[in-house]
């Protein structure tokens, strides 16, 4: 396509035509796609956006790493809505989480962001690709109701509506305007409240039981490093060094960053002295960690403006200071 504005809505036309579709970008391109992330959220169009994060703002640091689009991924389009964001930290996980991203987009009818960073994006490692038959695919939930009985935005029990495909005789209408269950524009206070509330509520399971994370050494941990993406691999080195020095450090790696796994962080907070949050930005996800920890442990940011990864010593220093 000719530009990111086009790419980010062409995929949605393809989805309503019956295909699965995704688009890939970095930095400024992600900014250009924001309008259609909102359109996908509002029209509940399942699709996947991959953002390989570089340093910003603006053109910033092409081909150099950062993790500074995390808040944009969550809040970048105007209005209230929810998305799912996943953060792989290896080529293997890029493959695996791409499948997960498509599956979750179908299950919850939301745009799913695959938030890489330049390091993970350019990394070369062994990747095992299973047989196609061994891959779990969540099929699109097409309605079983006939045209006439089907209402395009009538949610099921899980607050997610069934889908249809253009050309199947349903004569349905899709709009980015606030719409009723028929899909017709209905710009009033009640429809706005019920429909926009549902866009957020349907993702609630990701704050707890559906959240994806990787943990290690949490049982006895006094300091937990909360990290994601490439930074989690640097953090692992710092955790190992801290353990060698006798500090009981643990790992909480965020895989599903949005909705934020706040119930897990909230449960962990009273059990530890501190959480250390290294990020390739000047403080984004750390605000969510602070919010979830709610003062029940110290939270300490290890910032980095981007362009390279952290020195593990910087994270180690923060762990040792937090343990005192």
């Amino acid at each position: 396509m000719e530009d990111e504005l086009a790419a980010s809505i062409t995929i949605q036309g393809a989805v309503w035509g019956g295909a699965k579709a995704f688009t890939v970008t970095s930095g400024p391109g992600f900014s250009l796609m924001m309008e259609h992330i909102g359109y996908a959220a509002m029209t509940e169009t399942p699709c996947v956006f991959v953002d390989v994060q570089r340093g910003g703002p603006s053109t910033g640091l092409p081909t150099l790493p950062a993790q500074a689009d995390m808040m944009q991924a969550r809040w970048g389009s105007h209005g209230d809505y929810g998305i799912i964001a996943l953060c792989p930290n290896s080529p293997q996980e890029c493959f695996d989480l791409a499948i997960t991203a498509f599956n979750l987009s179908e299950e919850f009818r939301v745009p799913v962001m695959l938030m890489l960073d330049e390091c993970v994006g350019h990394m070369t490692e062994k990747v095992i690709i299973p047989d196609a038959a061994a891959i779990d695919v969540y099929p699109r939930r097409f309605t079983h109701l006939p045209p006439g009985e089907f209402r395009l935005f009538e949610p099921r029990e899980d607050k997610v509506p069934d889908m249809v495909r253009a050309g199947d005789g349903y004569r349905f209408h899709v709009t980015g305007l606030t719409h009723d269950e028929r899909g017709y524009p209905s710009m009033n206070v009640d429809t706005q409240r019920s429909s926009v509330t549902r866009l957020l509520e349907k993702l609630q399971p990701f704050t707890g039981e559906r959240a994806l994370s990787e943990t290690a050494d949490l049982e006895d941990a006094e300091v937990v490093v909360v990290s994601y993406g490439i930074t989690s691999r640097v953090a692992q080195r710092a955790i190992d060094l801290a353990r060698q020095k006798g500090v009981r450090a643990g790992k909480f790696r965020i895989i599903s960053a949005w909705p934020f796994p706040e119930k897990h962080i909230a449960a962990l907070a009273p059990k530890v002295k501190a959480m250390v949050v290294p990020e390739l930005n000047l403080g984004q996800m750390v605000h969510e960690v602070e919010r979830a920890a709610a003062g029940r442990c110290k939270v300490r940011l290890v910032p980095h403006a981007g362009g390279t990864v952290h020195n593990p010593e910087a994270i180690l220093k923060a762990i040792l200071e937090a343990a005192e």
Partner: peptide, 21 residues
């Protein structure tokens, strides 16, 4: 089957629809 899209983007949306079906 009708789609009310975003400002200026009817053509790329329609392109995706046509490519898929």
């Amino acid at each position: 089957d009708s789609f009310h899209t975003t400002h200026g983007r009817a053509i790329p949306f329609a392109t995706g629809l046509k490519l898929a079906n």
